[in-house]
């Protein structure tokens, strides 16, 4: 389990990174946290000819927050979210989600952006980005573009990023007053990839849901936002009966995958449970 040979470059600036990406395209890989890439390389499942280490690009290591939301730079580690990065429900939710990502030492290295670029369907950040309608900023020598999260994931380990593009930033909309969130994940052991998880965010006004976000992950080839069910939540009080109904409809709406850890039938039931528990937490 030793990686195949590669050329290693550690550029000092973003423009150098983009130039290298433009030059090597599919022959290269970006090394940020490396917590998914390096295992794949050790198993020789990934054999990039060139590895571009972006860990020295300090300009990518930031979290900024303003009224419109949170902007997360490509070098932001999972551990940055251990403590709330922004006051209010968003920071608290990100902190709770982060504690479910793998384990403490992995979170010291792995990055938010790397999780999205890797596009593992069981990734917590992919669920967060999908459910909250994140925007993805990609840069290349050709310029910069913003990708709506709905257009970003193409499937397991597959995204809309071009070979010469670097995911530089993620923008999460703010969750201001009245928002409440709930997150529930089930995995075989603490820290394992989710067999099923759900994220809910509800904005209440006088006890009535005015906006809703609901997503599930770990179920199929990408995280899924359940827009129809969100619409059904709006205007109601997110009562236990309503939550049961939504959970059942979530159950009916997904077509889960099977693997050695979970049958499709079991995953489908987990979706219902995760949705029920995430909504119950948000509505509590």
């Amino acid at each position: 389990m030793k990686p195949a040979p590669f050329d290693y470059v550690r550029p000092a600036s973003l423009s150098e990174v983009l130039a290298l990406l433009a030059k090597h395209k599919d022959d290269c890989k970006i090394l940020a946290g490396g917590q998914s890439l390096v295992p794949a390389m050790n198993f020789r499942l990934a054999r990039p000819a060139v590895l571009i280490d972006i860990n020295d690009i300090r300009e990518l290591d930031y979290i900024r927050s303003d009224d419109s939301g949170l902007t997360i730079g490509a070098l932001t580690r999972h551990a940055a979210f251990h403590r709330s990065v922004v006051a209010g429900p968003l920071g608290a939710m990100l902190s709770k989600v982060a504690s479910n990502i793998a384990h403490y030492p992995i979170r010291q290295r792995g990055t938010f952006a790397g999780s999205l670029a890797h596009a593992d369907p069981a990734s917590e950040w992919c669920l967060v980005a999908t459910t909250l309608d994140a925007a993805i900023v990609a840069k290349s020598t050709r310029g910069e573009r913003t990708i709506a999260i709905g257009d970003f994931f193409n499937g397991t380990f597959s995204t809309d990023l071009e070979a010469d593009e670097l995911l530089t930033e993620i923008r999460l909309p703010a969750l201001g007053q009245g928002w409440r969130t709930g997150f529930y994940e089930f995995s075989r052991r603490a820290g394992d990839f989710a067999l099923g998880m759900a994220l809910a965010a509800l904005r209440f006004e006088a006890g009535i849901v005015r906006e809703a976000r609901l997503g599930v992950g770990g179920v199929s080839d990408r995280a899924i936002r359940l827009r129809k069910l969100e619409a059904r939540l709006v205007g109601g009080a997110a009562s236990p009966q309503m939550i049961d109904t939504i959970a059942h409809e979530a159950w009916a709406s997904v077509s889960p995958i099977g693997d050695i850890h979970a049958t499709p039938e079991y995953r489908r039931d987990l979706v219902a449970t995760a949705v029920r528990r995430a909504l119950a937490e948000a509505a509590a």
Binding site: P39, P105, I106
Partner: peptide, 25 residues
């Protein structure tokens, strides 16, 4: 050598990391 067992944990700039998931360089 795939970051699960933690036997190779060392501190890099005071943070515990899996040394099998970093390259020496």
């Amino acid at each position: 050598e795939h970051g699960v067992c933690g036997a190779c944990t060392v501190l890099v700039d005071d943070k515990p990391v899996r040394s099998c998931l970093m390259f020496g360089v």
